[in-house]
Simulated scan of single mutants.
Amino acid sequence: MFRDQGFYTAHEKMLVGVDCMVFTLREGRLCLLLTRRKFEPALGSWSLMGGFVKSDESVDNAAYRVLHQLTGLDNVYMEQVGAFGDLDRDPGERVVSVAYYALIKWDDVYIDRVKAYNAQWVDVDNLPELCFDHPLMIRRAIKAMRRKATCEPIAFELLPEYFTLTQLQNLYETILGEPADKRNFRRRILENPCIKRTDLIDKVTSRRGASLYTFDEELYAQSVKFKM
């Protein structure tokens, strides 16, 4: 393929990075995976997990690679939040970073893998001071997550296969950051055919024994409609 090499060499080069915000639901709280930086700049500061895009991979693939290294998981739900490129965002070098958020079930978490990266799960309502523009990335990720959770079934990425309606309501209240009327919530959620009641009963978290529901991916794929 012919290229005008002068066009490319005449321009400055810069690094492209990815930052991954990994969320899970732990004991009813929305938590984010953070790590402490092991190098300068900002040595010891709380940080998101990230890395640089390699010459032989796409930006998306770089994010999936970082996510797999951190969690040991594949086929994880992940969405791009946007690009962050302020001139002074990284004191170490000129870096443009593309941020992503991912949702994983707590039962799928590899505790040893997380510890190996000196990472910890932190309640999103009690985040420590973070380095660079990571707080901005997190705010935009949560805003995007809240917007999408009302029209797409992404919240089920955080729930076990079987759940009660109370667990589901608590999750939505956690994501959206506001309480929901129990009757209205259940009416709206059960209008979605992809939410199916099973014959199973929850005898652990419910004294009376609440019915367990499940999210039917095949039914959702047939209609591709979901509303809250």
Rank of each mutant, 00 (worst) to 15 (best):
G85T: 10
A83I: 13
W106P: 00
R188L: 13
T214C: 13
G28Y: 11
E191W: 01
D216P: 05
D202P: 12
I175C: 02
I201P: 05
I175W: 02
Q169G: 13
L30W: 02
D125I: 00
L127Y: 09
L127I: 09
Y77M: 14
L15S: 12
L212K: 03
L48Q: 02
R188T: 04
M145H: 11
T164F: 02
P41V: 03
K13N: 10
C194K: 08
Q222L: 15
A63S: 12
V109T: 07
L48W: 01
S223R: 13
K148E: 15
L87G: 00
A62T: 04
D125L: 10
M21C: 12
P153G: 09
A155G: 10
G28N: 10
D86R: 08
V53I: 13
D112C: 00
F39M: 07
S223G: 03
V96T: 14
C131H: 04
D60Y: 14
V96W: 01
A210V: 06
F39G: 01
K143A: 15
L219I: 15
L34F: 06
W121G: 07
F84H: 09
I104A: 01
S206E: 11
F215I: 05
L168C: 08
R113T: 14
V224H: 12
R207V: 03
R36T: 04
Q167P: 03
R26G: 00
L130C: 03
I111F: 05
D56I: 09
S206G: 00
E79V: 04
